[in-house]
Design a protein around this nucleic acid. Structure first.
Lengths: 195, 195, 195, 195
DNA sequence: GATGAATGAGCGTTCATTCAT
DNA sequence: TATGAATGAACGCTCATTCAT
């Protein structure tokens, strides 16, 4: 026995909306998820959603703000560190943790780029990614090394999300992704590979 | 009088529909692009679209079939080659060419994954990517090397599309992406790096 | 400590609701003014409005009752007077004063006739206007004279409200309107104009 | 015998929409008339309305444009005449005809001023009324005479519409209204009445 | 090879209102 | 005196799709 009555009209509706919305957004995409669907799954009316959020987009914004704070903090942390290879490795490591902590949101962001681009969070996301890139990329590196940095970040990003449906131990995969990513950034940092 | 001119202007409505659709799909996403919009831009009625295509999805399918044949052929070619490092390098090179040849479509596929997943082309695309992966990946490589192969392909994919809005000479960028990608696959192929 | 200050500020929510409601009703119309809007402007919740008024219409009714009492009294006064030209002139004069005293309400009534017609105050208003008309109109006058009386009243009504956005000294305008109105009723009262 | 089949799917739907819309707009007001209501009365779906009109407001605009052209023409005609008393009388006469010809529309405009003010036709209407006023009003008349002109026009306007629900022969009423209105404008034109 | 006219389903949103606290 | 949380009904509008011509 406990608190699972039939009408759990507690002060947690807002949170429940966010949970269900994220689940559905990640599963079906933003556009294909209707407010009716969200409401039905929560057994409330559509209008109830509007008590807690001003618009559909607002639900998404709130998710983004709540869940992507760790990345924001990571960017801030990185900016305060000396721009050494060690720092960059640590950034990648921490980025992996942040991604894992909000995997559904980031999966959503990646799989709905076209949609998100027109939404207000699109810019926020893009700018943050670019700041992250700047932290990791040497401004006067040559083009291949720039690509290596880009690839390091992207490998983390896509790897963490896409390798979900690949066989193998999750921990091992995480470690491998981080290793490859770190390798890439190390190579980008090592001069005269070609020589 | 050959009818395959480069600037479609008359009597080739089907082709013009595809062109406009691809442009809009890539720009705004599949869901946010309505048939009304496509029709208006072509200055025909919506009903006219239905003369040439059975459904909205059909337009997308036709685009996919027409534009992604090169990748299909690449997969077929790769399957017929011996599974050497040289082959794999060549696969990456050719993949780059194929991507560049149908950039808008691939950009679309990447930015609309959530949508495409529910569509019939979603599976096609996924299976082809997995075949490509298989061609490039050593079945009994360790996890980091598997990730390296994944990353090689993904770097090509994302690099070709996302680096569009990055400063620098396009050719140089293409070359750099290919270099990094090739590097990754080479490393994946070289035993005992750690030793 | 008298509580009937001119600038309502505290503890007199009912009055403040009426003030804001009248302002918004007059400005945007009854239908386009939502209770949310009223509540927000007062910095209370919608539910608070329901503590003071049973329905939205009730707010309007209360405004009507409070603000149009002078006209009611005018009708009563007129009915008790002998039906002379002098009386009628005085009625017009007093009507002008009453109109000026509750201009926003009367402006609202005029600009929202379609809406008000379906509301309970619609009838009240109409009946009062007809009583006023009866006081001013000679039952066995000919049609033109009846129109003159109608026009006298309507000129007051519309003139007072519509001439707001016309250049000129307000007092002069009021006087002029009253003059024309009085003229009309005088002419209606003067036999054998045509002869 | 006759064309009254059950499915009169002729090319007259647009017209039928306008007819029903005007009827309902005039009867209940613009806001209280829903597209569902219009559609139901025509036995079509709401979506069908959108084939013929881009928005709800568009329906109203089309009504306004179609029905108020005579007044536009009257204004144009008046502007081309010499500004004599005779001209002004003729303007009033013609205005009466125009009003009678589109009574429901003008009734609607008068009874929904608050609504119409925010709509695009609000300005059109206002400007036209002011032009009409200018045609009829002497620029250097004194205030009472200006009011007389205003009253002349307004008497026509309101009289034609409001006197519908007053007993008496319609023709007689029309004549009386025109007479009073003409009287007013004549008085406004006659110098030194007071002397 | 295309249009004109329409449909049915659904969308995001807003509204006046209620009621336990 | 008020609020927090919700509802049910409706709204204007858009969509992919159909079909007779």
């Amino acid at each position: 026995m406990g608190s699972s009555t039939q009408h759990p009209r507690r002060g947690n509706t807002r949170q429940r909306i966010q949970d269900v919305a994220l689940e559905l957004f990640a599963e079906q995409g933003y556009e294909k998820t209707s407010l009716r669907e969200i409401a039905e799954r929560l057994d409330v009316t559509k209008a109830a959603l509007y008590y807690h959020f001003k618009t559909k987009e607002d639900i998404l914004i709130s998710l983004f703000e709540d869940l992507s704070r760790p990345v924001d903090e990571l960017v801030a942390w990185g900016a305060a560190q000396p721009s050494t290879l060690e720092t960059k490795k640590e950034i990648l490591r921490r980025y992996g943790v942040a991604l894992a902590g909000a995997a559904p949101l980031f999966r959503f962001m990646q799989e709905n780029q076209a949609t998100v681009r027109e939404l207000s969070i699109g810019d926020l996301f893009k700018q943050r990614m670019m700041k992250l890139m700047d932290l990791v990329m040497d401004p006067d590196a040559d083009m291949p090394d720039r690509v290596r940095c880009f690839s390091a970040l992207f490998t983390m990003h896509a790897g963490m999300l896409a390798l979900k449906d690949v066989e193998g131990d999750p921990e091992e995969k995480r470690a491998a992704i981080l290793e490859v990513s770190t390798d890439l950034i190390t190579q980008a940092h090592t001069p005269s590979r070609t020589a």
